[in-house]
Amino acid sequence: MTTRAALFIGLSLATTVATAQEIRPGSAFLSPEMRRQQSDEARNPGFLWVEQGEELFSRRSGEAPACITCHADPERSLKGAATRYPQVDAGSGKLINLEGRIEQCRTQRQRQPAFGYESPELLGLTAYLASLSRGLPMSVTTDGAAKPYLDAGKAVYERRQGQLNLSCRQCHDDLVGEKLRGDTISHGVGTGYPAYRLEWNEVGSLHRRLRACSLGVRATQFDYGAPEYLALELYLAARAKGLPLESPGLRR
């Protein structure tokens, strides 16, 4: 990924990211009823995943320390953490998202097998940690070591792809507010994820949503956690800077 990201540096000298005031959160495009339901913990089914994640956070498996052993008082100590992902991991120099960080703690600190993308455990823990930042402004780092990844994400966002030859930008900047079938096209920010989608009948990750957009234009669906989606995730988070984190979101 480092070489791939490095390739992009030469291509874009200055990556400009639209500012948050023109970009609206996903919930702004929901019906008023769904918007109310999203913010109501008792009626937003995503909170079932949050509760499971919270439970898992303090559960020990075997000899391994629980997450809470290292992260005491998570409501305070991990508040805001999710707003800073994805970020470049100091150890490896690679871009990782919140899921990646959780898996890293799991395999390296707890010495347990990785949960795997879209497993109920990883979704629960991710949704739980994200929920601790609900309402807080997105604040990813985009300069320094993050810059090549940001540029790579922007390049993916802007290039046409798939048999239908459309870019993310064409839909999520140029066609915002238009109807694509029954959906109203939003700014395509990821701040509601992990989100409960009615179409899925469950909570899913941002990368699952991105795979759906790729499929929609008949483009290659990259793997969960693939460098392309990670870089995109950073670019989306940068576009969303200052917007409130909404996970667990509620979506059609």
């Binding site: 798939g162 030859n165 459309l166 008949r218």
Partner: peptide, 21 residues
């Protein structure tokens, strides 16, 4: 924004099942 319905050239990252068609 209108997709090209009868073209296979100049497209990238086409899903495997649609590639070349």
């Amino acid at each position: 924004v209108m997709p090209p319905y009868f073209r296979t050239e100049g497209l990238r990252d086409v899903a495997p099942q649609f590639r070349g068609l």
